[in-house]
């Protein structure tokens, strides 16, 4: 089992290499179409032509496109993302600060989305044919018709402004500071420093953005789980369990759910990729200092090195989450293990 999982991960990693190469070339090329001149935007007002030229050379913008790409790629492989034109700092430093924030937020949003999705799907199935199902079905339709970033604004409006229950700016209350930043994951850091007030503030700040992200994935999970549960209900093993007098809730939990969970699981992989996309706008709206916010800042200021780096990291994250879901799929689906050929 562990061997198969490892094999699958290695295969995934090998497949990711050409994809990432193409992605990086694509990003690089598209950004070079840019009609605006990023150097002209970042030079101070009194700069001379010589200053400008020097800055151009220092960012390598005087070389040919393939040369620029290869230099960028070569440095990338050494872990050097270059320097930000707008922030005037190494891109690596900016990314290293933003990445844990985004991962933490996506992790919580993902967890919340899966909990809502699975419990909602089970509830829809249990209430099938009654008005409860209609209400839940209607709520999935509503949830799907409003994208995450509008949920973010609505949540701020209703739970931040009208009813001021949750904070909605940044990661931490301004009067609190972390004693030592250890990992950059604030949940972990505040828990490690044994400060309950910090942890409470961190979680309160993450509640609304994580919930906005969760609404983005929950309704589809609910629907898919419901319909796969409906398919299992006519299977022989369910009928047999019923004949043995097994209770309805036990049938659902023990027999129907494990079999119905697989399509939901592969959907979770796809949705995970979308959730990273969702963070871009949600982080901007909550002024949450993650990758998405960095991306928006970089886009607004035509900061090409930052855009390139963040775009590439997003792709790595999407490919990574797909690989993780594949491994989990392998772990819970005995049919794949028997065949010994991971899909």
């Amino acid at each position: 089992m562990a061997f198969l999982a490892l094999q699958l991960l290695i295969r995934r990693a090998l497949l990711a290499v050409p994809i990432l190469l193409c992605v990086s070339a694509l990003v690089f090329l598209v950004l070079r179409l840019l009609p605006a001149d990023p150097i002209a935007m970042s030079v101070p007002p009194g700069a001379t032509q010589a200053d400008y030229d020097q800055l151009r050379i220092s960012f390598g913008l005087d070389r040919s496109l393939p040369e620029q790409y290869l230099i960028w790629l070569g440095k990338l492989l050494q872990g050097d993302f270059g320097g930000s034109i707008f922030f005037r700092r190494p891109v690596m430093e900016l990314v290293a600060k933003a990445l844990p924030a985004t991962l933490e937020l996506v992790g919580l949003g993902f967890l919340l989305g899966i909990v809502i999705g699975i419990s909602g799907g089970l509830a829809m199935f249990m209430t099938r044919g009654r008005w409860g199902e209609q209400v839940l079905d209607g709520s999935t339709t509503v949830m799907m018709a409003i994208p995450e970033f509008l949920w973010a604004i609505l949540l701020i409006l209703f739970l931040g402004v009208v009813l001021p229950l949750f904070p909605f700016i940044g990661r931490l209350a301004p009067d609190l500071t972390l004693p030592v930043p250890l990992t950059g994951f604030l949940i972990l850091d505040s828990a490690l420093s044994l400060r309950v007030d910090l942890l409470a503030s961190v979680l309160a700040h993450m509640a609304l953005p994580a919930f906005a992200l969760a609404i983005g994935i929950a309704p589809l999970l609910m629907r898919v789980l419901r319909s796969s549960l409906l398919e299992t209900i006519h299977e022989d093993y369910v009928t047999q369990a019923r004949l043995r007098g097994v209770s309805e809730s036990r049938i659902v939990i023990r027999h129907a759910f494990p079999n119905a969970a697989l399509p939901t699981l592969s959907l979770i992989g796809v949705q995970g990729g979308f959730m990273f996309g969702g963070t871009v706008l949600v982080e901007m709206i909550f002024a949450y200092p993650g990758l998405g916010n960095l991306m928006i800042d970089a886009v607004r200021n035509h900061d090409l090195p930052v855009i390139q780096a963040v775009a590439l990291i997003y792709c790595v994250l999407v490919l990574g989450i797909n690989a993780v879901v594949d491994v989990v799929y392998l772990a819970v689906n005995p049919r794949l293990r028997l065949k010994g050929r991971p899909a």
């Binding site: 598209v30 950004l31 179409l33 928006i296 963040v310 999407v318």
Partner: peptide
């Protein structure tokens, strides 16, 4: 498919 669509859209619009 390796790109989150929003990220790809932003990159394209910058270009």
């Amino acid at each position: 498919m390796a790109f989150p669509p929003v990220v790809l859209a932003l990159i394209l619009l910058v270009g």
